[in-house]
Simulated assay, not measured.
Amino acid sequence: MDDNDPNKLVQCPYDKNHQIRSKRFPYHVLKCRKNHPKLASELKTCPYNARHMLPKQELAYHMEICENKISQDQDTQDAGNADRNCQWHVPVNTSVNPNMTEDWEEEVDNNAAPFVWGVNTTSNQQLKMTPNNRSCRAPRTLPWNDKP
């Protein structure tokens, strides 16, 4: 069986009698962790594969030999090859602002009236918003003809 097979049986780290399908393992572990809080406090999760749960004292050794660990040398080599083989490159923005003298602080309108909800600043009249007087109203004419 393949390691990526979703129907592969995996043993529960909390109860050795539990055999769970690989695709259900994350859900089962959460449920079983609640049922075994003492054991859950003693187990740590491998940073390379969340399905690897080990006692705290064994974690350091496991991290050195974990089959899912990718060496840093291989990772940097793969990154170099990926740059050469990649068909998709993000374009570098080389545009330059043509107006380097632009100053937004200088353009500020300090004499503008402040915004106040319900106040019409153009005519200085206060708008009355009541349930019967809404700013939205139904159109007086319909966009289609009544004639067939």
Rank of each mutant, 00 (worst) to 15 (best):
K147W: 07
D73H: 03
Q77N: 08
C46A: 07
D2N: 15
N124A: 14
T122F: 09
K147V: 09
P148W: 01
D3V: 09
P6K: 04
K8I: 04
H18A: 04
N35F: 04
T94E: 11
T130L: 15
N97W: 03
T122W: 06
F115P: 03
Q126S: 04
C46W: 09
H28T: 08
D109S: 02
N97S: 11
K128L: 14
M100T: 10
L127V: 15
E67H: 02
Q87R: 12
N85V: 04
T121M: 15
Q125V: 11
V116S: 12
L54G: 01
L54C: 07
K128H: 12
Y48T: 04
P143N: 11
S71P: 11
D146K: 15
N110K: 14
R84K: 15
P139F: 06
R134P: 04
S71M: 05
T141R: 13
C32A: 15
P26G: 05
V10S: 03
K23H: 08
K147L: 12
P98L: 06
A40N: 15
C12E: 03
A113R: 09
N133K: 14
P148A: 06
H28Y: 09
A138C: 10
A113H: 06
K44W: 02
N124R: 13
K147Y: 11
L30S: 10
M53Y: 01
N68S: 11
H89E: 09
E42G: 02
K128C: 07
H28C: 10
K23C: 08
M129N: 15
I70A: 06
K23W: 00
D73A: 04
H36C: 05
R33I: 03
G80I: 10
D109A: 03
V108I: 13
P139I: 00
Q11G: 08
C86M: 07
D109W: 01
C66K: 01
C136I: 07
C46L: 06
R24V: 04
D103N: 15
C32R: 12
K8A: 13
Q125D: 09
D78L: 15
L127T: 09
F25T: 06
E102G: 00
S95I: 02
R51T: 07
N35D: 15
W88Y: 14
T130M: 13
D73C: 01
I65E: 12
